[in-house]
């Protein structure tokens, strides 16, 4: 019993350590800048929510959030659609070159982003893709595809092959099989893939830093960075902005924590 209490105290303390900086960030946005710098630990005296409105509108956090939503949604949808189609074909259909295609995608699991971003930058520059939404949607989709195909293919590999043979005997074409048989039954794999690619796109920084200079197209990571240099010492605004981008993520996480933890850990372990 004592041991258990001790463990609770120990892990409780560590959990507090994980949450305290976030909590501090949250309540500091209600304090004045002078209070933050003179008594950084004290609690706020009053709750004035105008600072959130200010950093959302004037600071542009709303714009960054919208851009992140667009880039994340578009690339995640594209990953799910293209990778499930290809994953199905590579798992169930024997066609010339299928092994080569699969090996090509496996290579993508090994290549780190550094091995291609320099030339990707030149390519996008040459095609005038930089400072458009494509500049992030295309690479986020491309980077998500290899792992997505790998996960989806393994999932389909594990399904009984009689399922597909039956569909074939019923006269269904491959595309029909994909649409009406596959799409519904591989949903668990799609959830994992979707969570993993969406979080990857949501948090991506390096490419966003290099490819998007236009303030009106910046996503949360790069937008927040320019916000933090614009309001370098206006901690109140900065903390309000940080709070606004973290709270929805935390809420989402608390609501779907099982799926999200499973999605991230499976994605990472299998990738």
């Amino acid at each position: 019993m004592i041991r258990r209490r001790f463990l609770h105290a120990l892990i409780g303390a560590y959990s507090l350590f994980a949450l305290l900086p976030l909590f501090w960030m949250f309540y500091s946005s209600f304090k004045s800048n002078a209070e933050i710098s003179q008594t950084p630990l004290s609690l706020p005296h009053s709750f004035d929510f105008r600072v959130f409105v200010d950093s959302w509108r004037v600071g542009g956090v709303g714009k960054y959030a919208l851009n992140s939503v667009i880039a994340t949604t578009a690339s995640t949808v594209l990953v799910l659609v293209t990778a499930s189609m290809a994953g199905f074909a590579l798992s169930r259909l024997r066609f010339p070159g299928s092994r080569a295609v699969f090996l090509l995608f496996t290579l993508g699991l090994l290549l780190p982003i550094q091995s291609y971003f320099i030339m990707q930058n030149q390519e996008f520059d040459y095609l005038n893709l930089k400072d458009t939404r494509w500049a992030l949607i295309i690479p986020y989709t491309a980077m998500g595809i290899p792992l997505a195909i790998w996960l989806i293919k393994s999932y389909i590999d594990s399904l009984p092959k009689e399922l597909f043979e039956a569909a074939r005997i019923d006269g269904s074409s491959d595309i029909q099989t994909y649409r009406f048989l596959m799409f519904p039954i591989i949903r668990p794999a799609l959830v994992t893939v979707g969570i993993f690619s969406a979080l990857g796109a949501w948090n991506e920084f390096l490419l966003a830093l290099l490819y998007v200079q236009d303030e009106s197209l910046k996503t949360i990571p790069t937008g927040l960075l320019s916000f933090s240099s614009k309001y370098a010492t206006d901690y109140r605004m900065l903390f309000a902005a940080l709070t606004m981008v973290t709270v929805p993520m935390i809420a989402l996480y608390v609501g779907f924590n099982r799926q999200i933890v499973a999605g991230i850990t499976q994605g990472a372990v299998k990738g």
Partner: peptide
């Protein structure tokens, strides 16, 4: 299984291959 049609395979595989080659393999 053998694919029912070549076009079908192409439609299934080509989008992923194209995007991926364009933004990862070529660079």
């Amino acid at each position: 299984m053998k694919p029912t049609s070549r076009l079908g395979v192409f439609i299934l595989v080509a989008p992923a291959v194209l995007i991926y080659c364009f933004a990862v393999i070529l660079p």
